[in-house]
Nucleic acid binder design. Structure first.
Lengths: 251, 251
DNA sequence: ACCTGAACACCGTTCAAGT
DNA sequence: ACCTGAACACCGTTCAAGT
């Protein structure tokens, strides 16, 4: 059997026991760790314990930097919103196209972070980035010359749409299905509608292909089209009413 | 001190120990119990344990009737959707008004059940009631003579809007604030926007009152207006294109 | 087939104690 | 001020066992 070593080993300052990399416990590091979990596994995988673990601490330590889990998700959301490009004042696009482009950008940002849009449902984004994007949209609509009432109403409606669409797509992304599994699923849905009893569901069974023909991209563009056309129609009416005020009398 | 009673008490058949009322454990009873919790405290208050407790059993017993919590919420949602009134074939309203009325009805049903709309986010309602309502809407749009492509696309978009709006209103309802507390909150939001730095947020600070003037009801109606006008505009274009097909050539 | 108790592997948050 | 371990009061779901 080996005896004790003759020479005392040099007293190396005791190597840190396991100790995961610890990039200092800050608000930012916590938000980054949470976002990394979102990107990898989706919003539901985020827990105070998982986040703490990734940072090499216990969950209680997070509460020195973050009010609670809800605030943490709000911060993660605002960080993501920070990736949304702002209105380009030099753009010469008509406002209808400009708005569509913004909405595509917003959706693209959300959907690159799995189902992060779920954290935006029913929440008004009041973080610095959320406000910045909101300000940018309001600015674009003002510059387009829309009536002030509509400038005040439209951004919320657009945001609602982007978030709702992103939640649906994010859910699919979080499942992590292959392209063909998704295609197979849509085929199943179509078959399901087509196979419904024509007595009970005369319209669904008759319109099965129209109800399922258009996939995610087309459905999103359809919504964009409806929203922008609707807003343009309202704007035309309200501008006309402003030019010829009060019940058909001329000014 | 009182001594033991001289006469042995008659052996009444042991009264059932506590035993809450037990309306037989069925799928329906489980769904009803869950919905009661939603109505009282909101969706987040629903847990398998709470539902089981209300029925006088343990959580494991529910799994004989329901796949899991997700399916339970789906069933609760479908039960609620069952309250949405169906298309009246005798109605003589123009389709634009008819659609608006449906959407108001849908929102009204959701918001009478706290934040149940949260259970509908990112879910395609495939229960019998969900299908029935969907069929009814598709029927209304067909009868209105919309192009088939739009008949297939519009119902989803409308449902998206109703759900998204109901989630926001449901969240407020679940908090259970008084009318005046809600008013005070909106005043705060307006003050917040108005108080933003005009350098950082030139548009939000300038448009503070337009951004907050219109409350829940008006915002909902604005969205209805935009959606219906947008759809009408698309329908007009596509019908015209169908009448004069392929690149301006006459048939 | 239906129901049960007990357990497993988790949660968010608080709190007294340490530095 | 920041961090910690331990605890509290919960979760959804499974499983072997009972009827």
């Amino acid at each position: 059997m080996a005896t004790a070593p003759r020479f005392p080993r040099p007293e190396r300052s005791a190597p840190p026991p396991v100790e995961r990399r610890r990039p200092a416990l800050t608000r930012e590091a916590i938000v980054d760790a949470a976002l990394a979990i979102v990107d990898a596994e989706g919003v539901d995988a985020v827990s105070m314990r998982r986040v703490a673990d990734a940072l090499g601490t216990g969950p209680a330590s997070l509460y020195a930097h973050v009010e609670n889990k809800d605030e943490l998700l709000e911060l993660v959301l605002d960080k993501v919103i920070g990736e949304v490009p702002l209105f380009d004042p030099a753009s010469t696009l008509p406002w209808t196209e400009l708005i569509k482009q913004y909405m595509r950008d917003g959706r693209a940002v959300f959907t690159t972070h799995k189902d992060i849009a779920r954290a935006a449902v029913g929440r008004i984004p009041m973080g610095p980035n959320g406000l910045r994007v909101n300000d940018s949209w309001v600015g674009a609509l003002r510059k387009a010359g829309l009536p002030p009432r509509l400038v005040g109403l439209a951004p919320d409606l657009f945001a609602l749409y982007i978030v709702a669409v992103s939640v649906e797509e994010g859910a699919v992304a979080t499942l992590g299905l292959s392209e063909e599994r998704i295609g197979a699923y849509f085929d199943e849905v179509r078959a399901f509608f087509a196979g419904l009893s024509p007595q009970e569901y005369p319209n669904l069974s008759a319109m099965a292909s129209e109800l399922t023909d258009v996939g995610g991209e087309g459905r999103f563009e359809f919504g964009l089209d409806v929203l922008v056309r609707g807003l343009a129609s309202l704007a035309a009416d309200e501008s006309a009413a402003a030019r010829a005020p009060a019940k058909g009398h001329h000014a």
